[in-house]
Amino acid sequence: MSTATLDKLEAEAQTSHNIKVTFRVRRFNPEISDEATWQDFELEIDPKERVLDGLHKIKWDLDGSLTFRRSCAHGICGSDAMRINGKNRLACKTLIKDINPAKPITIEPIKGLTVLKDLVVDMEPFFQAYRDVMPFLITKGNEPTRERRQSAEDRERFDDTTKCILCAACTSSCPVFWNDGQYFGPAAIVNAHRFIFDSRDEAGEQRLEILNDKDGVWRCRTTFNCTDACPRGIEVTKAIQEVKRALITRRF
């Protein structure tokens, strides 16, 4: 049954391999000060643990006032997107060993959304953009008695964009969004894509018109930050390109 990788994993788990790391966290609490500051925390942690585990160590053992959102802790709920060493990631999907723990690990809130406290940002503008693309199936005519039929190929067509967990890692990594919060942002376009390319949906034209707006897809400068940031591995930039192409050809 055993394999080399497995033997190594099981052997290593027997002993503690804690290392010392520094978490350099961006702190902000307007109840105390209008200025954001950096604060360093020294931790002992197993490098195979998650950044979220490190943040919990701080909150539970050192400073209970450190504030961040989290829930599922394994990359499904989308609560804990943050900027880790300058890159947007989920704290629960980032292992310490993968982000060079020899140097201080910087942790900041995601950019482009108002910081409310420490790593907590105001998500409302993000969800508003999502709601604005009509992110729900729209059909006409009578409903069938049973399910609507859809071929496996048609289902596959929009599979990638159904994976979105609305964590905002993509939108808040986008330089266009940083400069102008009016831009719908990648996540809203991804969710429009999910319906535009769903063979069951009949409101593709309406959604395309919404995204044809001055704050729509044409603002995208194809920097691929969003694709790099997506913790679900969605090809975000490709989805945006497909929406652009659909706008030109009106075929989807």
């Binding site: 199936l137 059909t139 289902r155």
Partner: peptide
């Protein structure tokens, strides 16, 4: 399904 859930499909 009618609300839009993308179930896996049979052939």
């Amino acid at each position: 399904e009618k609300m839009g859930l993308p179930f896996n499909r049979t052939p």
